[in-house]
Amino acid sequence: MATYHLLETEARSYLQNKGINVPPYRLARSPVEAVKYAGELDYPVVLKVVARALVHKSDVGGVQINLQTPDDVERAYREIMATVAARAPGSPIEGVLVTRHIADALEVIIGTKVDPQFGPVIMFGLGGIFVEVFKDVTFGIAPLSYREAEQMVRNIKGYPLIKGIRGQSRKNEPAIIDLLLQVANLMVQNRELREIDLNPILVTDQEALIADARILLEA
């Protein structure tokens, strides 16, 4: 079965078309465009390379975060282009995605796959080392009931980080649960979807924002 990854811009618009909220973003094709969009979206911003062959963008130096000024953006754009060209020569580059940088957010992840025995399954966890080192994740079988989605969030060991500890704000848990429900439904309703990887999702006390989206489709 042949599969292919969507570009991040395509993945974002796929999700948007299915009614899932994605934070504003623009695709810049020059440093000038990047600076223009950064101004429109408001600083600080993040720049990310968009290229079909580069699924793991940060591994090839394709991501720069927390850019505060137009100068930062222009420099970051050129650096990304140069580094990607050096580390992944020959990869056609569509441009650079510009989006807002969210500070002081908790990183969570939502992943899905199609299990050979049980069909669409969905995973939730905290991002970064929590998933990589501690494997602190929970699984559910799509579609999810509200209670199941809630249990997936509450059953991770790192749940106190969502509830808020040591003076940290309480994160918007219902927004995470809603996103889990939406993504689980998406998997059930769209059989061409093989995998969705929302990593990270930035959760603040206000909202849960998809900061990166990878989608694998059946050709």
Binding site: D115, P116, Q117, F118, V121, M123, V137, T138, F139, G140, I141, E148
Partner: peptide, 15 residues
């Protein structure tokens, strides 16, 4: 038998 992902089985049995 392909025993499959243990966590997926857990989730399935619970459900």
């Amino acid at each position: 038998a392909l025993a499959g992902s243990n966590q997926v089985y857990e989730a399935a049995f619970r459900k």
